[in-house]
Design a protein around this nucleic acid. Sequence first.
RNA 1: UGGGAGGUCGUUCAACGGUAGGACACCACGCUCUGGACGUGGUUAUCGGGGUUCGAAUCCCUGCCUCCCAGCCA
Length: 570
Amino acid sequence: MSDALTNAGPAPAAPLDFIRQIVTDDLEAGRHGRRVHTRFPPEPNGYLHIGHAKSICLNFGVATEFGGLCNLRLDDTNPTREDVEYVDSIRRDVQWLGFDWGDREYYASDYFERMYECAVTLIRNGRAYVDSLSAEEIREYRGTLTQPGRNSPYRDRDPDESLVLIERMRQGEFPDGAHVVRARIDMAAPNINLRDPTLFRIRHAHHHRTGDRWRIYPMYDFAHALSDALEGITHSLCTLEFEDHRPLYNWIIEQFPDLPGDPQQIEFARLNLTYTVLSKRKLLELVERKMVHGWDDPRMPTISGMRRRGYTPEAIRDFCARIGVAKNESLIDVALLEHSVREHLNRVAPRAMAVLRPLKVVIENYPEGQVEMLEAINNPEDATAGTRQVPFSRELYIEQDDFREEPPKKFFRLFPGNEVRLRYAYIIRCTAVIKNDAGAIVELRCRYDPDTRGGSVAGERRVKGTLHWVSAARARRAEVRLYDRLFSTEQPGIDDSRHFAEEMNQAALETVSDALVEPSLAEARPGTTYQFERLGYFAPDADGAPDRPVFNRTVTLRDSWAKIERAQNA
RNA sequence: UGGGAGGUCGUUCAACGGUAGGACACCACGCUCUGGACGUGGUUAUCGGGGUUCGAAUCCCUGCCUCCCAGCCA
């Protein structure tokens, strides 16, 4: 990973968000030994998505801005849901986003032994016990939101007896659910998390890292607080739904004052985005029910999906900076994400010409068999990007949308008798329209003006429209996948009278199998996103072959003609 | 109806007792060999009611609305 990119981020710009404000105050007050140490703690039970990107940018951003460190911690305490495939994808995605955790890649499972010892300590101190109620009984004893719970009959079990039981639980002597280790706090607490929360449960399951060494696994609240303390975390940033857990988090931390860290948990609002879902459960369901083609389907809001779609790490980081961090529960307009993507891609994407729905054009007065190489600018926003040669010939293809036999108002493109410029080439005039027996337009006859060649000073004549095109003889056939928003409703799943999948956008993927692209695109490989002029940004997909490239549409260009047309039709 | 949290332009973030501002979106116009980009201008907001204060989005009281919590998930 390059140093330049490592945990890239500008100095914090004023004003500070509330978390950076807290960190600033902590530093000034000399808290946490004047250190800043955060962590990004995903559970490896799914792929990372744009919501995680927010958390990643926050945790790594805060750490580097304040001269601290951020750990990557895989929170792998539930072997029944987790998998190495997810671990690998998480490492890949965080790195791709541009963040570096150095050698601080930790796993909650590395701490199982210590967590076990902590549980034993709590039992010895009378702060925990082994409960032998069933899951259903525990639920009944817990009470309700408005009624206090009741003590379990095992709550006052002799610590020595609990000690024997926890050891036997560990040895695998009991089936799942037979016993559980619980903290002894307060069954009447108004905060349900304090009503003797479970610390360890029995799970006869194979763990992706610890194998079959353990038959009991710690619960989130216990594992998370201890992991933070063990790693010397100072600021433990998490989402709002854990606000209720903070008293328990603090309780656990207080039980073990000898641990290296004295972390404080701070909660912020998770990201919600319009026209998509950002819950691992729902994303997993889409994958498992094969409603999308895997976690990295370009329609998915996953990091890997966005990467495949052609989004850049810079764009995603910019988006995360723009949305800010607060405690308001917000729903961000996906247009903001698309704006960040366009803004970055506009600066860096090499331009090329491609025709999605070809319409043949014959330049009647252009010599048959002649091929002329025209110079095209690779990126008008970047002078260092240079130029390339594009072949021009008598037979071309333009976009079907760029011709209308009967032009609507403000239609600047080609129509009978009208002149347009062919990008980097000549001004042409449409002289005839050729149709098949069914009346469909199959070909245009045009004449060009040799004095208007692109780039030449002589060609100063002005026309309203400029069209992109490809040479019929030299163009390559390509498959283009046109992606759009995954859901057709702003907040899929908000209406719980129907399943969220019913709100999927059936037009989110349209495959164009016979697009034509300029020859230079034959070299295109995944990793670079191109701008197809006047159409949008497109990313080469690994599904493509040299003779059959495949491109994924990242996002369209802003299209003011589409707006005009919509207004006219309205 | 227990506990926790939150209400500022359409959306989102800011304003830390002193002119409610930015970004996105939207609407005009200009510019353009991408109807892209860029430039200029514009519309729109402090949840309601009281109070404190010279002055309140900010402090106090009160009401209303929204979200989260009853996994041996995280």
